[in-house]
Amino acid sequence: MDYTNSIEVHNLKKYYKDTKAVDGISLSIEKGKVTAILGPNGAGKTTTVETLEGLRKADSGEIYYFGEKIKEVDEKIKEKIGVQLQSSTFLSNLTVYETIKTFAGLYKKSLDVDKIIIKFNLEEKKKSKIKNLSGGQQQRVALACAVINDPEIVFLDEPTTGLDPQARRNLWTAIEELKKDGKTVVLTTHYMEEAEYLSDKIYIVDHGKIIAEGKVNELVKTINMKSVINFSVNHKSEIFSEYQKNEDGIFKTETSDIEKTLVEIYEKARKNDLTIENLSIRNPNLEDVFLHLTGRKLRD
């Protein structure tokens, strides 16, 4: 069956007593792309993906997998999806190899365990027990288990939460590899830089509802926010009196044309024989989009 969206969700609802965990979410997960569901903790991201993974039952709404409407996520669908849960734990006394092999045995079709171990840079830890791995290594094992069945869709629920920057970068590289392999990736995260870096399309979720969707640049454009340039000069700072200056002597200017403004600043400095120091440019990002839409910061 031909389909462009691996998953489509219409008006999905999941309520817990007085809490509307998911309140009418609709989304389309495009085949072969990385779709991020971004939102603060408790926004409903995990409930949404867990419903799509078959861990929770929706109160109402329609779910389409591979172009077909489904009543429940059955074994047939589970054969085609791979999941990395938010807090994955495995049997702690098994080795990395044994863990991945166990998961390989749960599917009708699976990839070669040794190849997957190499792909996720786990050769050195192949014989190490799970309990002896670092957080980043455990997440790589979780990712290896998620793709051992060569799935069409990979769900990654906050895969880098709790990891140090280096481990996070390593995992991003692994996720990029999945994208190159043509996998459809559904990523939930509350790190806006992660969503910006990895995703082709973003859904911003808050209070169980989608409040914005689109590509990163499209979303940023919607808030009409200017870029901010900060800099300082070595002396004669009165030359730049047209710009705002804070008590540390840093000048700040907002612009919608960065290139033009930078040329102006450097030209003025050159004419007055000044040196521009500590130059930084801050473009509007998803954090600003979220702030603009909700009045709160993403990590509040």
């Binding site: 993974e53 078959g54 861990l55 074994e75 589970k78 054969e79 999806i81 999941v83 849960l85 994955s88 734990t89 495995f90 998961f103 749960l106 599917y107 009708k108 288990c145 069945n149 769900f155």
Partner: peptide
């Protein structure tokens, strides 16, 4: 929970 998202 992890096993529940497999065909097991």
């Amino acid at each position: 929970k992890r096993f529940s998202v497999t065909p097991l």
